[in-house]
Amino acid sequence: MDLILHIWRQTGPSAPGKMVKYEVKGVNEHSSFLEMLDVLNEQLVTRGDEPVAFDHDCREGICGSCGFMINGEAHGPQPATTVCQLHMRHFKTGDELHLEPWRSRAFPIVKDLMVDRGSFDRIIQAGGFITVSTGSAPEANLTPVPKPIADQAFDAAQCIGCGACVAQCPNGAAQLFTSAKVGHLNLLPQGQAERYDRALSMVEAMEQEGFGYCSNFAECEAVCPKGISIDFIARMNRDYIKAKAFGSAKTAVKA
């Protein structure tokens, strides 16, 4: 199939960028979206043009490296699918596709479709962990975790940190990402000791990074490749409000 691509080209973080048009011919319907870009890049390099920079690694939908907007949708039109797992058979000849990087103040553009998601790491640094140093863990089966709780925690823990939620949110909010980690750890018995501190400090870190405020658009949930539910946002709000109202230490003792 033949496609027309409009791709955001930007040489560096502070350089101005613009959409540039490319025609790609003879795309195989079984190739993945990134393989289609590989083919384009190979052509660009061969004729001496700079290839399009984009992040990717596993190409199996699990590492969270890849991701950009395709016609206004984070990771493109297929639900629960990262761009590396999006295959060209979902497009047809003559389609015009507009590829843009995630746009968010907290995700500065590095180059072309590549952004810096370091802000996500800093949110995790603020409390997205359980304080347990190597060697200090008790026997694993000492604390049973009811299966439904473990399953729910798992649902949240699947987040791959891709940033699609932020990219699609009209407010540029990082609530889904943050709440997925808060939800994962706050549900488990192991995470209880730091539960309210975690909610407080991670929400604050999120605000400091310059993400927007969540007004419950639920766009994030619609594009999340792992189908993380906005129920986790409500959960996080609950823990955050409790911690704010009663103080994190006190709430933890009470709970």
């Binding site: 863990a137 299966k147 192991q190």
Partner: peptide
């Protein structure tokens, strides 16, 4: 396994809550 469970790794569990 002990270390990972303490870190919050959500391993599969049986209905009794054990691994």
């Amino acid at each position: 396994i002990d270390q990972c469970v303490a870190q919050g790794v959500p391993f599969a569990r049986e209905y009794g809550g054990l691994l």
